[in-house]
Design a protein around this nucleic acid. Structure first.
Lengths: 218, 218
DNA sequence: ATATATTTTTAGGCAAACCTAAATTTTATT
DNA sequence: AATAAAATTTAGGTTTGCCTAAAAATATAT
């Protein structure tokens, strides 16, 4: 089904805020991200829900359905391919591409996307290093890295955790789950323990032992 | 001023129907061309007029102002540059480009257009042979041809007529003026006279004598 | 646990761009 | 010139996506 530009922007925003774990996204987050008001978001969420693009329960935030995720991925694909085009072919610099790619991503033409992809020789990453989903919406997994190897100040997304029940229980207690965004604030050079900021909110100190068992994607 | 896609489409349509002579364009012509209803067109014409993009007098059709013409030319420029891109770089065939170029022409970014132009090495004609206006909206005049030299079935636009009062009077009587679209339906091989279709409406037979004195643009 | 603050939803409106049906103006025909 | 036909405009609606203000639900703090 062909969507309006507005619907596409909502799907894309929800997709980005949900992260890898497909966490629920709140009305206010969406409003802030799109520069609209919460009331407008609520209204649109009902429409998206009616189209089965999201799962929506009043006051509970939303998650993308498979269908919604697929559509979001195709928009992301288009956005990143156009960004690649702008930088590689039209000599745009990083700071100039966003606004234009935001427009180009809404052009409706499957054949255009595929021809562009071929013309660009099927790039796997956009100029920011973000992976470009393929035509089926599949993102090539970037190489995972152990959290212990992440340098200071960097932001990483939890992708995989060694399957040890105690560890998993502990992590959930301190608020880390698949998809959580971690920023390494500080590393203790003595014991290699690290101070993390979780999802931009809570600070937690974890031991090197634990950092060894968490895989992240940068 | 940044316009809506709809306003841009109206300007483009009026531009194309007005032809070289910037003739008045009727409400119905616009409606037919855009696939909307006459009532909707009237409404929009008021808006365009308020913005001084067209000259509009009730029941009298419209003409583009200089400002309106300039904006129309920039849309035409974008349309034709994108068409060139689609054919030359993405290997689209003629019949596939229209729909996509209709969308791409509305992308708002001056820098994008200029970079695209450079990337394509400043093409002067699109894949249909139509001239691409430059960034100031100036169209390089295509070489004029005498109507007598136009081959059968071709469509041509009247660009210049030898300045002979009798001829001009005669032509106006049979409905030919600067900007008229002529299609050569048939040529009489005996006397070189030709049967023309004028603006897709009236058929007229003209002598070789007259055809010698009309210059057209293909 | 209750009061306060925040978030989300509902209700009622607005602008753009479209529509149909009816009224008006212009054009064509006899 | 009067009438019929065609073109155009007006009047009153619809849909999409946004808004503000008020109400309801949830979260936070004492």
């Amino acid at each position: 089904m062909i969507q309006t530009t507005s619907v596409e922007n909502y799907l894309k925003t929800i997709f980005h805020h949900a992260g890898i774990g497909n966490n629920a996204v709140t009305t206010n987050e969406i409003a802030a991200s799109l520069g609209t008001k919460a009331a407008s978001v609520t209204e649109m969420l009902k429409k998206l829900s009616a189209q089965k693009l999201i799962r929506y329960k009043k006051y509970n935030g939303v998650t993308l359905t498979d269908s919604g995720t697929k559509q979001a991925l195709l928009i992301v694909r288009k956005h990143r391919l156009w960004e690649y085009f702008l930088v590689e072919k039209l000599e745009f610099s990083w700071d100039e591409i966003h606004e234009v790619a935001e427009q180009l991503e809404h052009i409706q033409s499957e054949i255009l996307v595929e021809r562009l992809d071929s013309f660009l020789e099927n790039p796997k990453f956009d100029p920011h290093g973000d992976p470009i989903p393929d035509k089926k919406g599949i993102i090539k997994k970037t190489d995972l890295q152990k959290l212990i190897d992440v340098t200071e100040k960097k932001e990483a997304i939890v992708n995989l955790v060694t399957d040890q029940p105690e560890l998993l229980r502990y992590l959930s207690k301190i608020g880390i789950s698949i998809g959580s965004k971690l920023r390494v604030i500080e590393r203790n050079t003595f014991d290699q323990s690290m101070l993390l900021l979780i999802n931009g909110k809570n600070k937690v100190q974890i031991s090197a032992e634990i950092a060894h068992n968490i895989s992240v994607q940068l």
